[in-house]
Design a binder for these strands. Sequence first.
DNA 1: ACTATGCCCTTAA
DNA 2: TTAAGGGCATAGT
Length: 298
Amino acid sequence: MLHEPIRDGAPALRPLDPPADYALVRAVIEFISQEYRAQPSLAEIARALRVPEAELCETFRRWSGLTPKAFLQAVTIDHARRLLAEGLPLLDAAMEVGLSGPSRLHDLFVKHEAVSPGSWKARGQGLSFAYGFSASPFGRALVLWTDKGIAGIAFSDEAHGGDEGALEDMTRRWPAGRFARDDEGAAARAAAIFDPAAWRPERPLRIVLIGTDFEVRVWEALLSIPTGHATTYSALASRVGAPKAARAVGAAVGRNPISFVVPCHRVVGKGGALTGYHWGLTRKRAMLGWEAGVLARA
DNA sequence: ACTATGCCCTTAA
DNA sequence: TTAAGGGCATAGT
């Protein structure tokens, strides 16, 4: 069974602490990825990471709404294979929500527009961006936007140059743009993006897609994959009318500037394996597991 | 000359 | 039987 009995009458949960919670989640995912041959039990994971087992469970539950076991099951290759074959969401529990209609209620609703080829060719000439940093369920995030909507999301990791690295990753895409910092604006936008309770069809998130024609077509196709579902690079290629261009699609997916909102984490290899992610495979796994939790709570 | 692919083929447990 | 790894066709930047 996928859902474990979840504690009844549990003591009050600590207040949400995304940075600390994600740090532990990330450590667990990394540990599992390395030690999966040994099939470590929950107790063994807790011991290896020197965290009390109860705290491990509580953190996962607070962060994703799932037990660690359910979370980890949701991101195995077997599970991915099955959802690919049947077009199912990542978690059995989500099935009763249905494959159409109601399940869309739990999507992050997005309205997008593409920037004119002129602005694109000018490498951002004439565009002014605001940006800022904020906590997110997947670590410290950089949000970047124009007056038309969100233009980029990046993640700040020690390993990749921290805040500077994240900002550089965005600015180098539009070297001729103007950039001004606004952390408050970023926090407000991050709240709308990363809190499922704030996802409302009547209040869609506005985003701008700045890229080549092919890239924009691929990114638009990504937007039609519902929360908790997944597709493959080759299926995506057929979808944009270039059935043999799986690899080029992979490259285009990899250049998506608005990670998470444009759900490039919902694309896996044909065999169900997580093949790559600009912001690290661990984060991709975390996003897929977290989304399984969003559906399970629906 | 780069890819966040996919397929087919070995080889080693 | 499976996992891992090399070779190669492929298409867009």
